[in-house]
Design a protein around this nucleic acid. Sequence first.
RNA 1: GCUGGAGUAGCUCAGUCCGGUAGAGCAGCCGCCUUGUAAGCGGCCGGUCGCAGGUUCGAAUCCUGUCUCCAGCUCCA
Length: 646
Amino acid sequence: MAVAPDGVKDGFQLTKEASASGPVALVVDGAQRDLAAVPPGGSDVHVVTQTDELGREIMRHSAAHVLAQAVLRLYPGAKYAIGPPIEDGFYYDFEVAAPFTPEDLERIEAEMRAIVAENQRFERSEPGRDAALETFVDQPYKLEIISGVAEGADALEQQGASGATISLYSNRRAGEDEPSFVDLCRGPHVPATGRIRAFKLLRSSGAYWRGDEHKPMLQRIYGTAWESKDALNAYLHRLEEAERRDHRRVGRELDLYSWPEEVGPGLAIWHPKGAVVRKTLEDLSRAMHHERGYEPVYSPHIGKRTLWATSGHLDFYKESMYPAMRVEGAEYFLKPMNCPFHVLVFRSRTRSYRELPVRFSELGTVYRYERSGTVHGLLRVRGMTQDDSHIFCRPDQVVDEMVEVIDFLRALYGTVGLGPDRVRFSTKPDKSVGAPELWDLAEEAIPKALQKAGVDYQVDAGDGAFYGPKIDVDARDAIGRYWQLCTIQVDFQLPERFGLEYTDEHGARERPVMIHRALFGSVERFTGVLVEHFAGAFPTWLAPVQAVVIPIADRHVAYAGGVAQRLHNGGVRAEVDDSDDTMGAKIRRGQLQKVPYMLIVGDAEASTETVSVRPRSGKERRDVAVGDFADTIVAEIQARKLDPSY
RNA sequence: GCUGGAGUAGCUCAGUCCGGUAGAGCAGCCGCCUUGUAAGCGGCCGGUCGCAGGUUCGAAUCCUGUCUCCAGCUCCA
């Protein structure tokens, strides 16, 4: 940070004097500017360098322009739409005659290298609306964006339509008058294309214009760009690492679960080892719900039409429901949610204000007809089990209940070693039920609770459930995608629709408020995220096999069996590898299966009642008394420790 | 649902462009070896080439349809 001196000096001169490394752009009084800009005397000037996240973002945005120039050079007649920077990279959308092939991407990348080598300058201009319209007379998407400026469409701001100012950025080859590329753009940009040091095109795919499936599909090219070859390689390595952690791949390698084609898309079957992980999580969930005053309930998988009509699902959720089954003249639907059943548990008798809040919980398996093309391993399925609870409380209890739920969430996630990465507050959607006043009440309660719990959050306008606003907590998967896990929803509608009541202290009938909440979200998705989070190397308490005893030779099998039995008696999931492989092969197998502890036993161990403990880390410890190991691992499991004891 | 890509043994993949009745490694099974910290050796088994049509004397290979998966878009826990 510096104060700009008086007198006309642009960013180039300023940064030269400040000897900043790798300057990319300026932030002048909080506004991003090109290095070529001349900050007014006395203004606050901050130099953005190429390794700042902002600097990378600007450079990636510039790389998107280079991509567009390359495509326009190679594919005459191509229309270009938008090309923003995104996390770790950039993309650009085009309308072209045919989708891009991998070979196309190679050609385009080569062309981009040429443009970078030409070191074309980025030059800003503000030609005014009419001139801009003239410039893009053959570019319908650009014309549409420019038209949006007049209507004050904020969403288009980043495409060069900030406020009423229309700005263009031109690239020019040295010594030529005509620009080789012009784009509508807010900027800023790097000074010249040569500043894009290392980049790679990653993939192409279809993408709807403005993300609207009713609008034409454009062809999007994704790329990544970095300030150095090393940084690019590090990123590519990260992508590979992410692929190694992919829960679908790990699940196959560790024999956790599968999706047989004959069952149907998005419907998983759990193998014994995956089932252990899942059950361990479910047991944890049940135990914690019990501690926090939730009462278990059970409900069926199907319910008659009238139930779903009353709840509003048939009006607002039907496209996500499997079609009706007809039995004895009645229509039954597979449940997409558990809430109507829990509502009926509440309504099964009269309720007093004295017993509120009432908290019902169920690991309820629901079925949703997700559109084909959206299912994804365990992270997006059609049959899922929610750790679903419904809290029925008085209106004055809502905020405290939500604070309690958030506390619960933190305790639960902390136990498994996940941090809630992102919290979103979603407000009333277009399709919704209920009186606006009730929505207002609910939407006031949520931020209040979040603030009281000290949680940072972002607002997603219009993303709420049809019956109420919600808090969603997202976790990141191995390749940086966010997955919605926990959801907490405030609902005034279902109590109304089902006519729920309690008697208050004056004998009057009052309507309770409902809080819907699932902390894992779905057990399937949560498990999938955890598999990626741990890359299959679960902490001991979650590991399918917690210890494998490895006899060195056949004569040690009996002793190994005794060790395993002793561990088993202590509740440890222990096995003996009595295959006729060599010890090295057994260790390798244990290592690949990511078993927390391998216990190697030979003559030395058998004669002294000890084991050699070889943890996954490979740091072996010899001469550990069997009893000591058993005590240690049992304590580690019971405490649900995330780090190994050895 | 949309755009593109891909389906060959349990897994990873070769063969497909230029039709001539399928091949490797790992896994599995059997046997030998009796092992001291990430793959001992030998043998055997294993595929209606996703499915259904079509073209052809002949189809894993070419054509059409369909299912599933993958990436992205859209939508969601």
